[in-house]
Design a protein around this nucleic acid. Structure first.
Lengths: 281, 281
DNA sequence: CAACGTTACGCTTGGCGTAATCATA
DNA sequence: TATGATTACGCCAAGCGTAACGTTG
């Protein structure tokens, strides 16, 4: 299970081609073939079907492990190197798009005021950025059952701490049959069409409220306004923090799901520690 | 950052000796020296001081990454191999010592009754056992702030779900000045002597309630009765679930800390999925 | 038959062991 | 000075590229 082989395997699987992977990695087609064969021989089972190239069951399973593993390896390397570099007094905090609630914004401001850089990244990247030491702290948001942790990509030895939970509202297009309601239950919306977004993945809804929740459209970006446009245009519903400017937002009264913000950090020192304490109240 | 080199580095650091590590790993002293040198050259910094052999700052940092990384690598391999083996109908669930609350025990029993193996392991191992596929599900318990996730060793792509939170009591020796109280606050106990146990690590208390909490004795096992004996003998206090048979247990009324149980699992199928649904209510 | 993956084969080099050398408690 | 890490050096094999060979859409 040499990471070198793992990387090649992942690339082949992603590109769906030995030759394309070889080009991407700077190997010959032959070398890639040999590397995959070595990995398969090592595990004693087939990882890829050829022509067309697609993962077997075992291959798919290995892929789920390999990608985060390689990410962790890179993060570990980056973290060790960075730790040895300048111990800057400037503090960097990585935040996902909706993680900075009004309350957290106030707490970030101080007093005392800190020399702070806020780095906005996608939800998936916050953990990686913190693990690699590029940011001292991270704030990630997501949709979860109350008091359940978010499902973060598992990228290194990070400490996670819930710092905020707030209610959600269902974003509905104007004129939607349910738009007038005072409150909605998730159970009432299983048959509706939903947006698949990074903030509110449909699998999470199914985890929480059972099957249903057809996907109307998948949106992979991180821009709230675009999501609102998509909802308004009727592509599907989604959940947003209750204080967002949602079009015809109706509070979700069934309290089995919340917008949750978590603070991530590695080993804390100095300023970072003080800020972390302030953020967790 | 070849895992082979990483493993050697970890072994040298743990054993505090190149020669001891060489013997343990089946290499010559020379090979180990070369491997460590290669790793240091690759990262461009010293990882170990020699004579005595101890990690540098960077080395200590790398160790924190390397150990779980290697664990994950093994877990990934084991998981892929196991997935391809017999899809047994027998269900295995790994549990840490106090994870099976009375309520969860009832839910485990059914109906319907399942062909179930319960495997007791230490708190640290549950995640690894589930990640490697040796168990289909895991139940881990620990002490946490309410609605905060437990800090689990980060060993693979696992799903975590809180399934129970219950109050804690402070275990006090008979005749302790505070033993008669109706309820205690953590803040009242910062100056007391505490046991350091896997269930209730003193760092967790400090995270939650600030500094203090001197360590009277460290206990690394998983046996509740031994812990109770240690408390009774005055080695220090500890927190236990309120329904435990604690000596002179006084409920913790300050509700900033609970005994939490989490359900862990990888990809679920069949029986395992049904059991998981039953456990999360 | 064309595109693509596999196999054969030679060569380079990474990495091990042996043994000599260096450093420190 | 003895213990233990490093360096020198030779050897083997892992693993790459070139090129010939299958195989399948």
């Amino acid at each position: 299970m040499d990471p070198h082989l793992l990387r090649t395997f992942v690339t082949v699987a992603r590109r769906g081609s030995f030759s394309a992977a070889a080009e991407e990695l700077g190997y010959t087609q032959s070398a890639v073939s040999q590397q995959v064969a070595t990995l398969e021989a090592d595990l004693g089972l087939a990882l890829l079907r050829r022509r067309p190239v697609e993962p077997t069951r075992a291959g798919a399973r290995l892929l789920e492990h390999a990608e985060p593993l390689l990410l962790r390896l890179r993060a570990a390397r980056a973290d060790v190197l960075r730790a040895e570099a300048a111990p800057s007094s400037r503090l960097t905090i990585a935040v996902s798009p909706l993680a900075v609630t009004p309350d957290l914004a106030v707490r970030l401001a101080g007093p005392p005021r800190l020399d702070l850089t806020i780095r906005a990244t996608s939800r998936d990247e916050v953990a990686a950025v913190v693990a690699s030491g590029e940011a001292d702290l991270g704030l990630v948001d997501g949709v979860a059952a109350p008091s359940d942790p978010l499902r973060l990509p598992d990228v290194g030895p990070l400490t996670t701490l819930g710092v905020a939970e707030r209610d959600l509202a269902v974003a509905l297009p104007e004129g939607h049959p349910l738009a007038g309601r005072a409150g909605l239950r998730l159970a009432d919306l299983v048959d509706a069409l939903w947006l698949q977004t990074p903030l509110c993945p449909v699998e999470r809804l199914r985890d929480i409220a059972g099957d249903g929740f057809r996907i109307g459209l998948t949106y992979t970006g991180d821009d709230l306004h675009t999501v609102l446009r998509l909802v308004a245009a009727g592509h599907g519903l989604t959940l947003l923090p209750a204080d967002s400017p949602a079009p015809a937002g109706v509070p979700l009264v069934d309290p089995r799901v919340v917008h949750r913000v978590e603070l991530l950090h590695g080993t804390l020192t100095g300023h970072a520690q003080r800020l972390a304490e302030r953020l967790r109240q």
